[in-house]
């Protein structure tokens, strides 16, 4: 039996800035994890990834990352993805500067 699908967000890095971005439900890019679309099934996930990979003039290195529904929107599961929502821990640089 196939394993049940774990919900995902689609994430990548912005082409010019390198900043972490997430795909929203309307196909745009947001810098905030909570505004990402939480993808609930494998077929949609595959399609979204194909879409993102075709948009190489906007983003680099698109992939699907595990996420869970939270009160304010999707939340990261893995600590690596949690770090990507903020920035480094040694300086207040990256997203935590402004978001």
């Amino acid at each position: 039996m196939p394993r049940p699908f774990t919900p995902k967000v689609l994430t990548a890095n912005d082409l010019i800035l390198g900043d972490v971005v997430y795909m929203t439900a309307d196909g745009g890019w947001t810098r905030r994890h909570a505004e990402a679309e939480l993808i609930e099934d494998a077929a949609t996930a595959d399609l979204k990834l194909l879409d993102a990979e075709a948009r190489g003039h906007e983003v680099v290195g698109a992939y699907l990352a595990d996420a869970v529904a939270g009160l304010r929107g999707p939340e990261p599961v893995h600590f690596r993805e949690a770090f990507r929502t903020r920035g480094p821990s040694n300086y207040r640089h990256g997203k935590q500067e402004t978001v």
């Binding site: 890095n13 800035l17 390198g18 900043d19 972490v20 190489g56 003039h57 680099v60 290195g61 690596r80 770090f83 990507r84 920035g87 480094p88 640089h93 990256g94 997203k95």
Partner: peptide
């Protein structure tokens, strides 16, 4: 848009430019 990332990546790496977690 004339170069894809697959085409560009080896060129940027030849010149020391990486893409990391939060930025280049």
């Amino acid at each position: 848009g004339s170069l894809t990332e697959d085409e560009f990546k080896p060129l940027r790496l030849m010149n020391g430019l990486y893409l990391q977690l939060h930025a280049y």
